[in-house]
Design a protein around this nucleic acid. Structure first.
Lengths: 243, 243
DNA sequence: CTTCCTTAAAAGTATATACATGTATGTATA
DNA sequence: TATACATACATGTATATACTTTTAAGGAAG
């Protein structure tokens, strides 16, 4: 009668199975529309909310594309976006079998510049935390990390001893990251950076600029400068399709 | 009154933001329970189904753990691998509203050096394809791409017109990538690179070294050199845990 | 033929309600 | 004391209903 599989799973899962199976069987051709929610209701004898949930979950899983006012379509095979994995520098150094050490240069509470406040998407200009740390691999400086931290999310940031705990680990543990923005560029070292990293002014450095969000709130802004001749970011990644 | 953010987004998204923000602020301590659905209903003045949807989506995104009959808890911090998405340069330039143009410098079939053959993990030394292309953004060279391609996977590589189709698009279309290795570093431009990119020798460049696999076979080896002062790799990414 | 307006249809959201299912807890009973 | 049961409360699912938002299509007016 209603064509749904006879399993113990909840109804919306049966509807998902039914739709996926029929997509696999080519019941609805690649570029044509799937039945509307109301048509599924009539065909399967379940409520529209249940059909809607099934379709919504299949959409967020990438199988379908839905356009309000238009209909539901089979998603094209997804393009493989090339992803690079950025690891915690301390962990990476240790993983290579080398010795890691941090030196805290600055750990303070400051009033942000107008520009920085803008990056935090603040309406007002509350005080924020500011840290500058140099990371060493076998006593050779390889990375200068400057971080600005939102105190409303991480209140005790300036009380920590970041020569013991990596800033990265502390932040990851304190607040969930819901979104990350990265900008990678290559820049010549300025005078201050060169001094901290013990390199010549103008040497090539890898600059990783990162913003993280927790919900709608900017949690941290980081500027990570790697010495080009001493460090590179590496990763090996298997793009795997879900479900 | 109801403490929800005042944005244009749907209600369940506001509830999600509200919960994430409060987790970030440490309102509900790490190991203790969050309020029950009915308590959220009373506190926020929305229906239970709306709260339920918000909590369900946060759970499937990996932020929460829910136990039927018990309650809702904050999920332990995930092993956070930060991912960066690398896009097709041609697409990125066009997406910025600029004009993209390619110039093919080399497109040939060569016998690989011993070292290159090793990178391909070849036992013997069969001929491979080699291409060098300069990518322009509004007539300004921004990237030099050198690629080595395995002819057993992509047989007609040297017959293509890569001033029309981007090499990236062609390769993605021709063979599925099952694994990718990346190494990003910052290097000074050598004489030849500087000439092709119209920059000074020693200028900072972003070097992206990439190997792709199809199954157990190395498909391509690429060396992408970006002019540091003209181009940066950017991405915004939502780390969402699957189901 | 073109432009504007009306209308229908689709997905999206929000709510009230009901019942199902799993867990912990307190209480009565053996 | 220990077991069994009743109960309260938590999340999970399903439905009916109403309204919103977006889009496409058809028709009237110019």
């Amino acid at each position: 009668m209603n064509a749904l599989p006879d399993t113990a799973s909840p109804l919306y899962e049966k509807v998902k199975d039914y739709i996926l199976t029929n997509i696999g069987a080519g019941k609805w051709s690649k570029d044509r529309k799937l039945p509307s929610e109301n048509e599924f209701v009539a065909a399967l004898g379940v409520s529209r909310m249940t059909v809607h949930r099934a379709l919504r979950e299949l959409t967020s899983a990438g199988f379908l594309i839905r356009l309000q006012g238009v209909g539901t379509f089979i998603a094209p095979p997804r393009p493989q976006s090339t992803l690079i994995e950025i690891n915690n520098i301390a962990a990476e150094i240790v993983a290579r079998g080398n010795r890691h050490r941090s030196e805290v240069l600055v750990l303070e509470r400051i009033t942000p510049t107008k520009e920085l406040s803008l990056s935090f998407e603040f309406a007002k200009r509350p005080a924020i935390y500011h840290s500058v740390v140099v990371n060493f691999e076998n006593d050779l400086p390889v990375q200068l990390e400057e971080r600005f931290v939102n105190p409303s999310l991480i209140p005790d940031y300036d009380k920590q001893d970041f020569s013991k705990t990596a800033t990265y680990d502390y932040l990851m543990q304190k607040t969930p990251v819901t979104e990350v923005e990265h900008i990678i560029s290559a820049v010549p070292a300025d005078a201050e950076t060169a001094r901290h990293l013990a390199i010549d002014i103008g040497s090539c450095c890898l600059l990783l600029h990162r913003r993280t969000w927790t919900g709608a709130v900017v949690a941290t802004i980081s500027k990570l400068t790697y010495v080009g001749s001493r460090y590179s970011l590496g990763s090996r990644y298997s793009p795997s399709r879900k479900t």
